[in-house]
Design a protein around this nucleic acid. Structure first.
Lengths: 204, 204
DNA sequence: ATCTCTTTGAACCCGGCGGTTCAGTAAGCG
DNA sequence: CGCTTACTGAACCGCCGGGTTCAAAGAGAT
């Protein structure tokens, strides 16, 4: 307990992310974050010291949380027993779900909005989030191609296009995270993306 | 000239968009906008009355400017004489260029960042920008399908996927508008998107 | 030249927020 | 019981930015 009780710190970070996600960085005042955490304002400064580092800490925690979800969706592509089509569709569906959840949407929004003020956070997200997902997806697709279940020349490009076919139409439906996309729509989006993807990359 | 000289108003709006695009809404102070426009601060308030309406006016002008560019790219799909592949690739390339230009990137960034404070602006952009592009693209594709040059069941879905295949990979390359994407890369992105699109929708 | 309307610059008010200080309190611990 | 450490609440400072006011200075038209 070098710097106060550890649970208070945790509560502050969670409250901070909630508040930032709701109001944005500029519109969130530390008073409110402290209130949301059920804590006095000096306690916040005692633990985190600064509004900037408070933001950084809260965001980095969120990056770790959300990337795990996205990577987990790729497990559907690990040595599927049945049809490749089903595996792709399921993976696509869960990828869409992970991209739809409130935390992920808020994270993307904040990173994008504050990219000028916090370029390092954006870098961190690209490297430890987006790029790791692309790599893992390319790996899975390469395995499937090697096993003769897909016909892929460039796994990186194929993965990129699969993600694009999934998330592009979804962002149109969600209207930049303004609208909640119902589950049945997510399913049909995953199906449409899989259909087109397989037209291009099905095993010959 | 009900409210002062008309050219001053124009200069103020242009300076406003430049400043907002550079620093964001919250970080732009009216002092700076006035200075950028070569005008005194009360003049700004005399013409636009408010920082909010200043923002609204500047943004709506930008929406009109940029959507025209995107729609112009679709002219490549109007009754192509040569190969459909070439028409698609050219249209894709120019669509990417229009999505890459500084104004469009800034517009998207500002809309996304301030969506909570200005939901009406986002609505306007969706209706008069994004949706009109989707409709026009679907129309072009339907024509090509009717002429037997493509094999498309649902033109709306096909257009959506074409745009996704274009912009998805590009946004990865541009790292949320942080990096300038070179022209040759845009070309190869358009080619890759066209290839995959044609695998799914080439005339049988 | 005169009248009117716009513009200017500078000062000013006001509210909000980041960050600090401080006296007091609760809690764990010997 | 006393010591230490964490926490609280409230007041406080300084700064900045939106918006206004006002007297003085152009600039156009007749």
């Amino acid at each position: 307990m070098s710097r106060g009780r550890i649970d208070k710190r945790q509560a502050i970070l969670e409250a901070a992310f909630r508040t930032f996600a709701r109001d944005g960085y500029g519109q969130s005042c530390v008073r409110e974050i402290a209130a949301e955490a059920g804590v006095a304002k000096p306690t916040v400064y005692n633990h985190l010291g600064d509004k900037e580092t408070l933001f950084r800490e809260a965001m980095q925690a969120a990056v770790g949380r959300t990337t795990a979800d996205a990577l987990a969706a790729l497990e559907w592509l690990r040595e599927p027993d049945g049809e490749v089509r089903d595996a792709l569709e399921n993976a696509g569906y869960w990828l869409l779900r992970s991209h739809c959840c409130a935390d992920f949407q808020a994270l993307r929004w904040l990173l994008h909005a504050e990219a000028a003020r916090f370029p390092d956070l954006l870098d961190d997200f690209q490297r430890n989030g987006a790029e790791r997902l692309h790599e893992a997806l390319a790996d899975r697709l390469a395995r499937l191609a090697l096993g003769g279940r897909l016909n892929i020349g460039d796994p990186d490009r194929a993965g990129e296009q699969f993600l694009a076919l999934l998330t592009g139409p979804m962002e149109r439906r969600s209207r930049l995270a303004t609208r909640e996309v119902p589950d049945t729509e997510l399913r049909s989006l995953a199906r449409a993306a899989t259909d087109t993807f397989l037209c291009a990359y099905a095993a010959s």
